[in-house]
């Protein structure tokens, strides 16, 4: 029993680290892309379209596609393809929310900022990003919850995590392992969502919260 518990904890930490690294990288790429495409509506449409198509690829197929590609650098299976897949899936919610949030900043604020002599970077840093934070964080939240689910499948390419229980449960027709894995994944997703709600409210500028 104690052994099993240790295993669950270990797999959970593994799962968190996979999702955490993937989402961290997704934020580092998605937010700048989302901001960049506010400058050009055509580019925005193309980028959002590509990101949406990415999401339609079944995850198991994406893992399969990456095996031959990443084998060339010696990472056909395991940690690297799992992180890359989740990174790609997370782009859409993060890019779309960032784009929408920056795009929807009140034009009057933008004009006031320009009229006061802010450069575009100052405008982003002092006005647009602070105002966009709640919506961007909303995108991160859906990306995280989705990624926790997708990462469970990454067990099939040897990435570890809570999916290990599920895949083993299926191959050994062991309902206990299957249910353990499924419940743990759900709990993790719910817990992560609660944490992110808290973080979102912490990061929202005081002036935007309800009085």
């Amino acid at each position: 029993m104690v052994d099993n518990f240790d295993q669950i904890v270990m797999r959970t930490l593994e799962h968190i680290s996979l999702v955490g690294v993937a989402i961290g990288l997704a934020i580092l790429t998605g937010v700048p892309i989302g901001i960049a495409i506010t400058q050009n509506e055509k580019a925005a449409n193309i980028v959002l379209y590509v990101a949406a198509i990415m999401m339609t690829i079944p995850s198991i197929a994406l893992f399969g596609i990456m095996i031959p590609v990443l084998s060339k650098v010696g990472h056909g299976i395991g940690y690297v393809p799992a992180v890359i897949a989740v990174l790609l899936y997370s782009q859409l919610p993060i890019i779309r929310n960032t784009y929408t949030a920056i795009h929807n900043v009140d034009p009057a604020l933008r004009e006031a900022a320009r009229g006061m002599g802010m450069s575009s970077l100052q405008r982003l840093r002092m006005v647009e990003i602070p105002l966009a934070i709640p919506v961007i964080m909303g995108g991160v939240r859906s990306a995280v919850v989705m990624s926790i689910g997708i990462m469970a499948i990454a067990a099939y390419i040897g990435a570890g995590g809570l999916g290990t229980f599920i895949s083993r449960g299926i191959s050994q027709t062991d309902a206990r392992q299957l249910i353990t894995g499924a419940v743990a994944v759900s709990f993790l997703a719910i817990a992560a969502d609660f944490f992110l709600v808290w973080l979102q409210s912490r990061l929202t500028p005081a002036g935007l919260k309800r009085a």
Partner: peptide, 19 residues
């Protein structure tokens, strides 16, 4: 940018930064 910083600008929509 230098020019704008020497000119006060007030607009109808006010445009105070809510953050």
């Amino acid at each position: 940018i230098t020019l704008r910083r020497q000119i006060g600008y007030v607009i109808q929509q006010i445009g105070l930064f809510p953050n």
